[in-house]
């Protein structure tokens, strides 16, 4: 959707104004909103305009085909949050929401995070196998580099470490401990 004011930039600020009981909807780009004084960025501690409003705007753009998101049928089985509620306030209801709304969330995540998979810290309690896999792939990269540099002694050491770690992996994929 393009900004109503300039018709050039995409509208990222969406709001409804009620004057004398008359409701009007506005769709503006950030710059025009600022020019019109609708986007108060001088804040103090006023939460008026937050990241969550912005996210809702991004969601609108990420969802050109509405047939997938037919309102209330699409709910998280754990916490009961509907996708409509999420797109309104930009907050998910629980960890399971990520699985429940995966297909709709993917385009949004690409937008705000880039296409990526978590490669950082892993909790010890749940991530036993995943931790090992991460460690193995890290050592494998080091092994390749060692071979390139023709440091064969170091490479042999790394190979043995990788073997030892592989033995600790559970037999079946995703089998946990």
């Amino acid at each position: 959707m393009l900004c109503e004011e300039c018709q050039k930039r995409p509208a990222t600020v969406h709001y409804t104004k009620v004057v004398n009981n008359k409701k009007t909807e506005y769709h503006l780009c950030e710059q025009c909103a600022r020019d019109k004084g609708e986007l108060d960025l001088s804040f103090g501690f006023d939460p008026g305009f937050s990241i969550h409003n912005l996210l809702a705007g991004l969601l609108d753009m990420a969802q050109p085909q509405p047939e997938k998101v037919t309102s209330s049928s699409n709910k998280c089985p754990n916490c009961g949050l509907s996708y409509a509620q999420f797109s309104q306030n930009g907050r998910l209801g629980c960890g399971d929401c990520y699985a429940a709304f995966k297909s709709q969330l993917e385009p949004l995540l690409r937008r705000i995070q880039g296409t990526s998979v978590h490669s950082g810290k892993v909790p010890e309690r749940q991530g036993g196998a995943l931790r090992l896999e991460r460690q193995i792939s890290k050592l494998s990269r080091e092994l390749e580099q060692a071979v390139e540099r023709e440091e064969y002694e170091q490479a042999a050491k790394l190979r043995d470490q990788i073997r030892a770690l592989r033995r600790r992996l559970p037999k079946s994929e995703g089998g946990g401990e």
């Binding site: 990241i51 969550h52 996210l55 930009g90 907050r91 998910l92 629980c94 960890g95 990520y98 699985a99 969330l105 949004l108 995540l109 705000i112 995070q113 990526s116 998979v117 978590h118 950082g120 810290k121 892993v122 909790p123 010890e124 309690r125 749940q126 991530g127 995943l130």
Partner: peptide, 27 residues
């Protein structure tokens, strides 16, 4: 680490630590 040794965190192998707002997801 101390907290995690006693609490079950919301974590996904692809998405990492799960957060209320997707802008904090992952790490």
């Amino acid at each position: 680490d101390l907290l995690e040794s006693n609490l079950e965190y919301a974590f996904d192998r692809d998405y990492g630590y799960l957060t209320a707002c997707p802008t904090n997801l992952g790490t």
